[in-house]
Nucleic acid binder design. Structure first.
Lengths: 239, 239
DNA sequence: GCAATAGTGTCTTTAAGACACTATCAT
DNA sequence: ATGATAGTGTCTTAAAGACACTATTGC
C-alpha cells in the first residue's frame, strides 16, 4: 500500500484512452423580432466550412472550470460577458466527432443584441442566425441537436421565470419584456399576467426615466443588481 | 488546404493536455423511512478509504455515451438498471481531484431498495447511506456538493412530477407514493392533492390486486409501460 | 363495534386568463 | 380631439390546500 502523495507522483493521466472534451455554447439574442443564435463558420478541420457553435477546448492552464471556458470563448466572439449563462447538458459518444469518442459540455446563454453588435460585426467568422433560418445552413457535428435542446430549455424556463429579461438592454420597458417573451414562446401572452409576475418577482427597479415608443411614454426598468432570478411556482400558458 | 480525411489521418488527440474525465452517479432509494444514497468505499488511490459516488472512467471502447458509462457503473454495484436516470450537471476545475484538472459528468438515479438489496449486500464496498448520515462520513473529492445538487434537483422535480414513483417497487399503493414523496420533500403533503395528480398523470394502471397494510386493503398500481413521466404546470407546496 | 387506513366530496385559496376599462402622449 | 400605446380593475377559471366525510378491513 502506497500513500496518496507517492501515488500522485507516479500518476500518468495519458496512460488511458480518453475522450476528446470540448465546451460549446448556444448564445441567444433577439433582433428584429426574431430569436437568433450565434454561429461560427468553421475555419479549420474537421467540418471546415460548416457552421458550429462558439466553443472549443478547455485550456487547463487558464480555465478554472468549463464555465470559464464557455465565457472565454463567448467573449472572444462577442467582446462581452453574457447576461445569463447556465449549463444545459453534455453530449457524448463515439460518432458525433470524426476525430473519435468525444464529449461536449453544452451551455446556453443570453445577451442583448446591442451589447455585442459592433464587436460581432468586426469578427468575420461569427454571425447571428435566426432560429427559423437554421435549417437552411450546414451545421457541424450534432450542433443542431444541441441548439434544439437549448431552445427547449429556454422556452420551458421562460414559462416559469422572467428569463427573457436577460436578453434585453440594460434598461427596458415592460412592453419590450412582453415582446421578448412572445418571440421566445412563439405566441402572445396576456400583458396583465406578465406585469403581475414582473411586480411579484422583485427583480426590477425603475430608472425614473421613460421613453416614447410611438404613443404614450413607457417607464424604463433595470434588473436590480445582485438579485437572483425569481422562479414562479406555476407555468404561463399551462394548457 | 487539406481534406478532412487527410486531416483525420494525422490527428493525434493526445497532443494537447486534456482534463481527466469521469462519470459519477447519485443513486437514491428509500429504506426504512429514510432517503438514502449509494456510496462506495474507495479501495484505491486517490482518496483511498473515503466514501465516493459510484462511477469511474469512460471506457471508450465499450460505452456509447456517458449515460452508458453511468449505467455500467451502477449495474456493477447494484446488479440492475435504475428505474430513473437523468443527467444532473458537470463539475470541473483544477482543484477537485488531486491528479489534476478534472471534469465529472454527474447523473442522478432512482431505484427501489428491494430491487438491489441482495446484490448490494454481496458487494462489500457499496453501502446505502441515509442522507441525514452523510455528514458523519468522510466524502471523497467534491462528492458532497454533487449529492447536494442532486438532492435539490430531486426535490424540485418531486414538486412538479410524480418522480418518487421511480423509487418504489414494481407494484405499489398510493399511500406508498405519498410516503415516498413526503420523505423526499421532508414534509407532509395533502393526500387529496397527490391522488388528483396521480389520476391526471395517466402514468399508472391498476394491477387488480390489493394489499392489506394494517387496516383496509389498498389497491396496487404499476407504472404503465413506455409512458413518459408527466410534468405538471404547478408546484406542490408552492409557498 | 371499533380502530385504522383507504379513498371521496367539496369548500377555500391562489395565481393565471380574459378582457374591458382608464391614462398619457404625439400629432 | 383622436388614435395609439401604457397601464389598471375585476371577473372567470384551473388546480392546489384544507378538511370533513364515507368505505373497507382485521380484530
Amino acid at each position: 500500500m502506497i500513500s496518496e502523495a507517492e501515488y500522485l507522483k507516479n500518476y500518468d493521466a495519458s496512460r488511458f484512452p480518453a475522450p476528446l472534451v470540448t465546451v460549446d455554447s448556444v448564445l441567444f439574442t433577439l433582433h428584429q423580432g426574431a430569436l437568433c443564435v450565434l454561429m461560427v463558420k468553421r475555419a479549420s478541420q474537421p467540418q471546415q466550412g460548416r457552421w458550429g457553435l462558439p466553443g472549443g477546448f478547455i485550456d487547463i492552464a487558464r480555465d478554472t472550470s468549463t464555465r470559464a471556458t464557455a465565457l472565454r470563448k463567448l467573449t472572444e466572439k462577442t467582446g462581452v460577458s453574457p447576461s445569463w449563462l447556465e449549463q444545459l447538458d453534455t453530449f457524448s459518444g463515439p460518432q458525433r466527432d470524426p476525430r473519435g469518442w468525444s464529449l461536449t459540455v453544452a451551455w446556453y446563454a443570453l445577451i442583448a443584441w446591442a451589447d455585442c453588435a459592433p464587436h460581432i460585426a468586426s469578427v468575420s467568422d461569427a454571425r447571428w442566425i435566426a432560429v427559423s433560418e437554421l435549417e437552411k445552413i450546414e451545421l457541424a457535428f450534432d450542433h443542431g441537436a444541441i441548439i434544439q435542446a437549448a431552445l427547449h430549455r429556454l422556452r420551458q424556463k421562460t414559462m416559469y421565470s422572467l428569463l427573457p429579461a436577460y436578453c434585453l438592454p440594460e434598461t427596458f420597458t415592460q412592453s419590450q419584456l412582453q415582446e421578448a417573451t412572445e418571440i421566445i414562446l412563439g405566441q402572445s401572452i396576456q400583458r396583465k399576467s406578465l406585469i403581475r409576475r414582473f411586480e411579484a418577482s422583485g427583480m426590477f427597479e425603475e430608472t425614473g426615466e421613460s421613453v416614447a415608443t410611438g404613443a404614450r411614454k413607457a417607464r424604463l426598468w433595470r434588473r436590480k443588481p445582485n438579485v437572483d432570478i425569481h422562479l414562479f411556482s406555476r407555468n404561463l400558458l399551462a394548457d
